[in-house]
Amino acid sequence: MKPPTFDYLRAGSVGEVLEGLAQQGGDARILAGGQSLMAMLNMRLAKPKLLIDIMRLEELRQIERKGDTVIIGAGARQADLLAWPELAEALPLVSLALPWVGHMQTRSRGTICGSLAHADPSAEMPLALVALGGEVFLRNTRRRRRIAAKDFFAGMMLTARAEDELIEGISLPVVKGARVAFREVARRHGDFAIVACAAMKTQAGVRLAVGGVADVPIARDWPELEGTALDDALNAFAWELGARDDVHATARYRRDLVRMIGRDLIGEVLQ
């Protein structure tokens, strides 16, 4: 269980990163925290020709509030964000979800953007990005572009990032005074979610986002529903997610959790 061979590039600037991606395309991988990529390399599931280490680039480490958004750079580690003093006030949903990401020993290295790039449908950060309606900043040697969270995730481990693009960072909206709730069910503490739900009160009503069920995290907006109307809406949503069986849970169990936890969380944020 040793990695295959690859070149290692310790980037000294973002330009070098983009140059490396441009030259090597799909055979290059960005190495940030390495918490998913290195495991895949050890298992020889991935065989890049070039790893580009971006963790010495100070300019990518930012966690910064700009008006009503928070900008998080590609090099910001999960532990950095957890320790950010403004987190609970600016991004209450993230402050609820982030402790569920892996363990302290992986959050200390793993990055926020790395988790998004990996696009595991059960991971918490993709769910938070979708729930909050954040944006992803992509950049190659020629251009920069922004893409909305819901358009970024294309499937299990698939994103809209082109092979020559770097995820430079993301922005998450600060929703002032928003009521949010988060709950996750996993087999053990720190495991990938069987179902993770995030709820948020919106101007028009309420939003529920679900991870771990469909191929990508999915958010749904409703007016303020209650009673059977809410039950019906949740049931329809649960079925639409296309849950499947695996070793750890059945599709039915996942739908049950979406219905029950969804109802609880919506109740909490609408209270």
Binding site: R10, Q35, M38, N42, L51, D53, M55, S108, R109
Partner: peptide, 15 residues
Amino acid sequence: GMLTRSCLTLAAQVD
């Protein structure tokens, strides 16, 4: 100062 899984880290990274 960071807890690190040394199996998920390349020797080259800690130079």
